[in-house]
Design a protein around this nucleic acid. Structure first.
Lengths: 254, 254
DNA sequence: CGCTGTCTTGAAACTGCTCAACGCGTGTGG
DNA sequence: CCACACGCGTTGAGCAGTTTCAAGACAGCG
């Protein structure tokens, strides 16, 4: 559907299919080629923070690989990770709430395309593909956020953790022949807790319980293996939704 | 870009110039005129449910007056009100998460414009005003949701209630000379609780405590008066953000 | 080798939830 | 016109799940 155009100005941006040699380089359903002409590519390291705006004007970002995290800190030291952005996701400055000390940072090494929002808006005005790409990406993200909202608002501790693990497993997991699923957990415990609206101690305890039950094991801090995905799914009321969400993603290419 | 000094944010939006002689039909952001050609106007009654899609295809909605609520019910009877949509807000079918029995319903009598999403997408492709309107509306909503996310994830019961009251006061409140603010509370207690991720009992208790402290009074179920807005603001860590959000709203027209 | 940031774990304190009862306004039928 | 049921909101008492605080374990790094 998307073809490579000769529009690259500065550096070659294989914006079509990142011929993923690496597991992470999931193809974002193809980022519209014409965007390339306006993009600056940021290479992120884990933990690196990304300026929300660009030279004082509103910016837009498209994640190409890796992941970003938006978090806010409110008076009183209350911190909440609002959203995680994965390959194909878009973000614009105006998504960040005002007066909430919002920060965007990388949770993983990866690549992020940055634009002036005005440039994106102009391009979108005469390139339906770009317009559609943004609109659909935002819609998909909104739907994902809805599930997350429900999880944070209604689930107990274990359900939230199970939900997050499920998302990771579905999004980036690798299936072993045994039926087990292995994946990375890019967030630190603290960030994970802030994302789930939990206390870090409680989160740790919950993960220990899952480990004790044999469902989960993590060889090291940032890696996890789920013995039985269905058993995990049984722990979260959002299992169906997550499955539907991640099943749909690839076909998002429309 | 049309831009008229906004009065009350959440009152009716004129579709075009329609010199709204009607009761509350005042004009803030102004919905792009050309959308009118594709719109079907739905008149909602409180509690009425609005079909998420239209004749099997994806739909888009723009709230003109009143308010809508999106809620999901997950297995186990867990219910979460995901978002509230106010005049000027947009919604499209794809915002609703899959497999979560999502429902859109009116919390107030009002008017909602309905479109086929495909029609909106086509129009946006050659009308930058429409495209910009949708993109900006979605961005504004996303920012609002971020605050709500932080509230549900991090705030205690009283802070959440104060946050919601603050939103209402800023959005639809009428200032009395005494400094008090009066506003409507369109949601039922149960829905309010589900929106805030609280138990209805707990919510009721919290409101009683606020009433006992003299800050709040409600002459009847759906009306409230805040004696001192600053005192209320002091109760929620999100006060600054809410103020910024609602101060910015009128100028959002850019 | 010791430092530091991160993660884990325990015990006590507390917040919010559950469940059950009651009050109140409204609609319905005798 | 009253009796009654119903939906909705309020309130209390007891309980459960989370948070808090403090201490210990572990890994990476100078």
């Amino acid at each position: 559907m998307v073809m490579i155009s000769g529009l690259k100005t500065r550096e070659a941006l294989p914006l079509t299919i990142a011929a993923a040699s690496d597991t992470k380089e999931i193809l974002p359903g193809a980022i519209p080629a014409r965007l390339g002409a306006y993009a600056a590519t940021l290479r992120t390291r884990r933990g690196q923070s990304v300026a929300l705006s660009f030279e004082g004007s509103e910016a837009a970002f498209v994640v190409r690989s890796g992941a970003l995290m938006l978090h806010v800190t409110l008076p009183g030291g209350l911190r909440q990770v609002i959203a995680l952005y994965y390959p194909g996701d878009v973000f614009r400055t105006a998504f960040a709430p005002p007066a909430a000390s919002a920060h965007l940072s990388a949770v993983t090494a990866g690549e992020v395309l940055r634009f002036r929002w005005s440039a994106v808006a102009e391009l979108a005005a005469d390139d339906p593909e770009t317009a559609g790409y943004f609109a659909d990406a935002v819609a998909k993200q909104t739907a994902r956020q809805a599930i997350h909202m429900a999880a944070v608002g209604q689930f107990d501790c274990q359900q939230r953790v199970a939900t997050y693990l499920m998302e990771l497993a579905m999004g980036t997991g690798v299936r072993a022949p045994s039926g087990a699923v292995a994946f990375e957990m890019p967030l630190r415990r603290t960030d994970m807790a802030d994302y789930l609206g939990l206390n870090a101690d409680t989160l740790s305890r919950t993960m220990s319980r899952l480990r004790a039950s044999g469902l989960l094991s993590h060889p090291d801090r940032h890696h996890a293996i789920i013995r039985d995905l269905d058993a995990l799914a049984a722990l979260t009321p959002a299992a169906q939704s997550i499955r539907a969400l991640y099943a749909k993603t690839p076909s998002t290419t429309r």
